[in-house]
Computed example of a mutant assay.
Amino acid sequence: MHPSTTQSSKGLIRQPALCQWLDVTRSGLAKLKAKDLTFPKPIKDGDARQAAAYYVVSEIEAWLQSKIADRDKHQTDSSEGTNQ
């Protein structure tokens, strides 16, 4: 699933929409961020803990592309090892 053209053209995406895009719950997103330190950091709309969190769509897309590239590299490495 990927963002609609309106989301990607905006440049920023709010956390609830990001969760929907990635098909994870809010706690699932928190676990993902804790586990993967390369996950893009949010931009907070204020200092309060409850302040809205926004993510830069291009950073999320770049992160996803790097994950896909890593996956594909590992699949290629694995298949080359079985051909020998």
Rank of each mutant, 00 (worst) to 15 (best):
N83G: 08
D70N: 14
E80Y: 07
S58T: 05
S79A: 11
P42C: 09
I43H: 13
D72V: 07
K33E: 12
Q15I: 05
I43P: 05
G46P: 01
T5D: 15
A51G: 01
K35C: 13
R71H: 13
S9L: 11
S79H: 07
S4W: 07
I68P: 00
K33P: 00
Q50N: 13
S4M: 08
Q15S: 07
P42R: 01
L29Q: 00
S4I: 08
D47T: 15
Q20Y: 07
V56S: 00
L22H: 01
K31V: 13
E61L: 09
G28T: 12
I60R: 01
A17E: 06
S27Y: 15
A30H: 10
D77G: 10
S58C: 03
L22P: 01
P16Y: 03
S66H: 11
R26M: 10
W21E: 00
K44P: 05
A48I: 03
L29A: 02
I43F: 10
A53F: 09
D23G: 14
S78R: 09
E59A: 08
L18R: 04
Q75N: 08
P16T: 04
R49F: 04
L18Q: 03
A52Y: 03
G46N: 02
Q20P: 00
A53D: 02
S27D: 15
L18W: 02
I68H: 08
L12D: 01
D72Q: 07
Q15E: 09
H2D: 12
G28H: 10
I43W: 10
D45N: 10
A62K: 04
I68D: 03
P16S: 06
D70V: 09
T76N: 12
G46I: 07
S27W: 15
G28C: 11
V24R: 01
K35Y: 15
V24A: 05
A52W: 05
I43G: 06
S79Q: 09
